[in-house]
Write a protein that binds this DNA or RNA. Structure first.
Lengths: 194, 194
DNA sequence: CCTTGAATTGAACGTGTGTTCAGATAATCT
DNA sequence: AGATTATCTGAACACACGTTCAATTCAAGG
């Protein structure tokens, strides 16, 4: 037998990516087999190879698409460095809270990429970090910010903000708005000149 | 043949843990086989089972020992909340920079633990977080700190500090002392009342 | 020097891995 | 209705996995 009722490439392709994303995030890339992904999709393992050349490419494309979406999704507002920084902080938190699985694998599975794939992902991540660093540099140049080392501050702020996905739970004590406000409060105080 | 020259249980045990730590950190727990660890130690795979009941326990004990050492290593100084916080920040950074592999697996391989092992590790981690939260609470109580939510601030600060291991490279632009100073500067400004 | 016991080998067990592919099926097009 | 094509199955490939264990070797104690 082959091709059970009602199955089309248009729906199976996304289902493969969804299942892979969920399973990779939950158990880790190396711990998930192609047969597990196939079972989740409702298909035999061989059929997956109509939608990806191999397992690693499945992971790579999830990470690449995530980072490209992240880069495309941010529209820096007009205004000074402080206003742009606030927008960056709030947007980073909101965007990451909406995609915990993608964030997780994009930060955790780097070592399972081939060297070329790793370089691509690393480049995209650096593009994102450079945006924050540019804001900090601008604020320092205008004297509004007191940041002795903008490279370190960039890494520190991104680590702090991204960490929100490890503890935030929907319906918990704090709303998303609360979280955005509280993080922005800390970042603002940390970079602002006295 | 068995038992090649000059090998003793006293040296093989630690070598197994060292090799496992290095390989787990580099490639991930699930991606490392017992045979790879054995090859690194210079022994056959079966011999590893004289030193660990199974692969998962090897991981668990690395994580547990790391967290217990971390908890035991910190000796909070006399003084107010600000002084204790500074000591915590500097100690956290120094301790983590000395053990990048342990930090890495303790944060990355949680999902490869059995439920009971996970609960143990989670408890140890919470003990550590509670120390920071207690400092923040004390500072808020005395009016020295302006921290609207000490639980969130705890997570934010720990994420920020632990992130140092992802980018710091020995012999780079910044020394360890520089890094300690710069992080402490950000944390201090973020929590201090105006 | 001989015995004892810890340390290790090497083979084996059953199961699972990523990937390929000829053949089968169902939807689409003429 | 018949031919075509995209979609999927199921079996197979060669290899690797974690773990066990009888047999073997070496170091130490009497």
């Amino acid at each position: 037998m082959a091709r059970t009722q009602g199955s089309h490439a248009g729906t199976t392709g996304p289902k493969v990516r969804d299942a892979a994303l969920r399973l990779f995030a939950r158990h880790g890339f190396a711990a998930v087999s192609m047969r597990q992904i196939a079972r989740e999709v409702g298909v035999q393992a061989g059929a997956l190879y109509l939608y990806t050349p191999d397992k690693q490419t499945l992971l790579f494309e999830l990470m690449r698409d995530h980072l490209e979406d992240l880069l495309a999704a941010w529209d820096p507002p007009e205004g000074g460095a402080l206003r742009r920084l606030e927008h960056f902080v709030r947007h980073h938190i909101a965007y990451h809270l909406d995609r915990p699985d993608l964030v997780f694998i994009a930060y955790m599975e780097l070592r399972n990429l081939s060297p070329e794939n790793f370089a691509t992902i690393e480049g995209l991540r650096r593009d994102y970090e450079n945006r924050l660093e540019a804001i900090l540099n601008e604020g320092v140049a205008t004297g509004r910010f007191d940041v002795p080392d903008t490279k370190l501050a960039t890494m520190a702020v991104i680590s702090m903000l991204t960490g929100v996905t490890t503890w935030f739970r929907e319906g918990g004590r704090l709303s998303r708005t609360d979280v955005g406000n509280l993080y922005w409060d800390m970042v603002r105080k940390a970079v602002l000149a006295a």
